[in-house]
Lab assay of single mutants.
Amino acid sequence: MDETGKELVLALYDYQEKSPREVTMKKGDILTLLNSTNKDWWKVEVNDRQGFVPAAYVKKL
């Protein structure tokens, strides 16, 4: 969790967005987890953008 109590995830792999609903991340990025109710796609925030990334590409910290 960060200082505001939000849950964080670590990008395990690079991911290039394939639609406007997704976000690009690089391996090693720390992202804010917004929603993990879907087992396949998690909603995150990175670089002031919100979108989805494959759940298998990130790990909760």
Rank of each mutant, 00 (worst) to 15 (best):
A56H: 11
V23H: 03
W42T: 03
K39D: 10
K26E: 05
M1R: 11
D29H: 05
P54K: 03
K60A: 07
V58D: 01
R49V: 07
E7N: 10
D48E: 10
K18F: 05
K39I: 10
K59I: 15
Q50C: 10
N38Y: 08
K59V: 15
Q16W: 14
D48A: 11
L8E: 07
L10A: 06
L10E: 11
Q50T: 12
T32N: 07
G5T: 12
N38F: 08
T37F: 09
A56E: 09
K39V: 11
M25P: 01
V44D: 00
K27P: 02
R21D: 11
R21T: 13
G51M: 05
V46Q: 15
K43V: 14
A55H: 03
P54M: 03
V44Y: 01
A56L: 10
R21P: 05
K60R: 14
K43F: 15
E45W: 07
L61W: 08
A56P: 08
G51T: 02
V9W: 08
E17Y: 05
L10G: 02
Q50W: 08
N47V: 11
W41D: 01
W41Y: 07
E22S: 06
P20R: 08
P54G: 02
K18L: 09
V46G: 14
Q50R: 12
V58T: 04
A56I: 09
D48G: 15
G5F: 13
D48S: 11
L34C: 06
M1G: 14
Y13C: 14
T4K: 12
S19V: 04
V44R: 00
N38M: 09
S19H: 11
Y15Q: 00
L31F: 07
L12N: 03
S19T: 12
K18G: 08
R49L: 06
L10C: 09
N47K: 12
D14T: 06
K6D: 08
L61N: 03
V9R: 02
F52E: 03
N47W: 10
D40K: 13
L8W: 14
L8K: 12
E3I: 14
E22W: 04
Y13V: 10
K39S: 11
V46P: 00
L10H: 04
K60C: 10
P20C: 09
W42F: 07
A11I: 02
P20I: 09
K39N: 10
L31N: 01
K27F: 05
V9I: 07
W41F: 06
E22N: 04
K39F: 08
K39A: 13
P54D: 02
E17Q: 13
T4S: 14
V46E: 03
E7K: 09
R49S: 06
M25L: 08
V58W: 01
M25I: 15
K27E: 06
D48C: 13
R49I: 07
K59A: 11
I30Y: 06
D48V: 06
A11N: 01
D29P: 00
V53K: 00
D14P: 05
L10F: 09
K43Q: 12
D29A: 08
G51L: 04
E45S: 10
D29E: 11
L12F: 03
D40H: 15
K59C: 15
K60Y: 09
V44K: 00
T37A: 12
D48R: 09
K60M: 10
R21Y: 13
R49Q: 07
K26A: 08
D2E: 13
V9F: 06
R49P: 01
N35G: 06
T24V: 03
E7H: 11
A55S: 13
Q16S: 11
Q50I: 14
D29K: 03
R49W: 05
D40E: 12
V9N: 01
G5L: 12
D14L: 02
L8Q: 09
Y15H: 04
K39Q: 11
R49C: 05
N38E: 10
K27A: 12
R21N: 14
P54Q: 02
Y13G: 05
Y13L: 09
Y57Q: 04
R49F: 04
D29F: 05
Y15S: 00
Q16E: 14
K26Q: 09
G51I: 04
A56T: 11
K59S: 09
T24W: 04
R21G: 14
A11E: 00
F52W: 15
V9K: 00
M25G: 00
V9M: 05
T32E: 08
W42N: 01
D48L: 10
E45D: 06
K43P: 00
M25N: 00
L8D: 04
T37Q: 11
K26T: 08
S36Q: 10
T24P: 05
Y57S: 09
L12I: 10
W42R: 01
G28P: 00
I30S: 03
L12D: 02
A55F: 03
K59H: 09
E17N: 07
T37N: 12
L61F: 09
E7C: 15
L33F: 03
Q16F: 14
Y15L: 01
E45C: 12
V46M: 15
D2K: 11
K59W: 09
L31T: 00
R21E: 13
N38A: 08
A55Q: 05
W42G: 00
Y13W: 11
V58C: 15
K26H: 09
T24R: 05
P54F: 03
L61A: 05
S36N: 08
D48W: 07
